[in-house]
Design a protein around this nucleic acid. Structure first.
Lengths: 206, 206
DNA sequence: TGCACCATACCAACTGGTCGGTATGATGAT
DNA sequence: ATCATCATACCGACCAGTTGGTATGGTGCA
């Protein structure tokens, strides 16, 4: 078999989703054409509309795939996710996200965060898929935060803080895009870590 | 006299910029067509290309206008900008931005933050105009922060914290868009205020 | 034989941008 | 005062290229 150029072993559908993740993060949803997606995935238009009834449907599928990807790469695979102390996990999480902010901007930014900016008013299916993705991330993170709150005693709404982490990350990505440089973005995540440390009593950074 | 429909007294050029602020915040830059902008501004295509050589040029002009608008509405007109204590001004600033997060999402979100997401790689003139706008805001805010640092004594890089304020705001806007509801966004700005309060020694909120 | 998977040709609608032309008012020589 | 000259602001038909999407047909495996 082996139909076309990139990434043998993956299906046309998977390659289209991967192309969406990459291209939309670089150029945005509206500016990314179906033809371009097909080109990046090494697939023809016929294949595209065989797997997805519309461009919008690919957007939704790619958002769902993004959720799964985050669950795996951020909440499952890294070693620190098995740390015993939930506060250690939380701080390691922030360190991990900070360390990701490096290299080309389009490689570390958030697919759903980028897409929802353009679609939140005009495309409800996409908006809802992005909301679900961000929500899943926040709820997962809130588990550790809640455990840390219970273990270390602090006056914090876990889910609210989890969404704040998301907000800082998304905002940091915008800074990186505007400056074409991740330095200020990393700075901002460092402020987030300082805040969380202070919330949990660690008077200041080491 | 009185050439055309809306907002007497404003010129076609001003109306096009206002239409860009509104429409781009609602649908994004790429998804907003020149025809649509003309319609919203009550202006013909001929007028558009009389005032701007290209759609991109309008984007740049609108970003510059956005900078001026922020300087006026956020740093000059409000009463609290004349408070004597710089820390009071800083906290009032955050309260002010928090209070703005209300009503339709497309009315309180940031034009340059929205636009730079789509243009940062493909359109350098627009990216730079957005960078300048965010930079001007941060530098202006850093003045108060620096004064507060000097007056209250704290270990803070003023400009870095100012950019962090921007990041939290931009991230909060993304939350509001994804959820189609400003509640979580306000929550996040409340976290920011708590952080700044803690940085300056106020152990916790009133 | 049937069906999942894909390729190619094609289409109507829309895109940013161009172009010839007009309406209006300021300027300056007579 | 009058009128030619010019610049600015604007109009709207038009253009070539691109868009998302469709229609149809082929191909290989169950």
């Amino acid at each position: 078999m082996s139909t076309s150029r990139p990434a043998l072993g993956t299906t046309a559908r998977d390659r289209l989703i991967a192309a969406a993740h990459q291209t939309v993060r670089a150029k945005g949803y509206a500016a990314t054409s179906v033809d371009e997606l097909c080109g990046a995935a090494g697939v023809t238009k016929g294949a595209f509309f065989h797997h997805f009834p519309s461009k919008e449907a690919l957007g939704v599928a790619a958002a769902n795939a993004w959720t799964a990807r985050a669950e795996e790469h951020i909440f499952t695979l890294p070693e620190w996710t098995r740390l015993p102390d939930p506060l250690d996990r939380l701080l390691a999480h922030i360190d991990f996200r900070l360390a990701m902010i490096e290299g080309p901007v389009e490689d570390f930014t958030c697919f759903v965060g980028t897409m929802v900016q353009e679609a939140y008013l005009t495309n409800q299916p996409i908006r809802k898929a992005c909301q679900a993705s961000i929500g899943a991330y926040a709820e997962r993170l809130a588990e550790d935060i809640q455990a840390a709150v219970e273990q270390h005693g602090a006056q914090i709404d876990a889910l609210s803080l989890a969404y704040h982490v998301q907000a800082v990350l998304q905002g940091a990505f915008i800074l990186a895009k505007a400056q074409n440089d991740p330095a200020r973005a990393r700075d901002s995540v460092a402020h987030l870590k300082r805040y969380v440390s202070m919330l949990f009593g660690k008077t200041d950074q080491p």
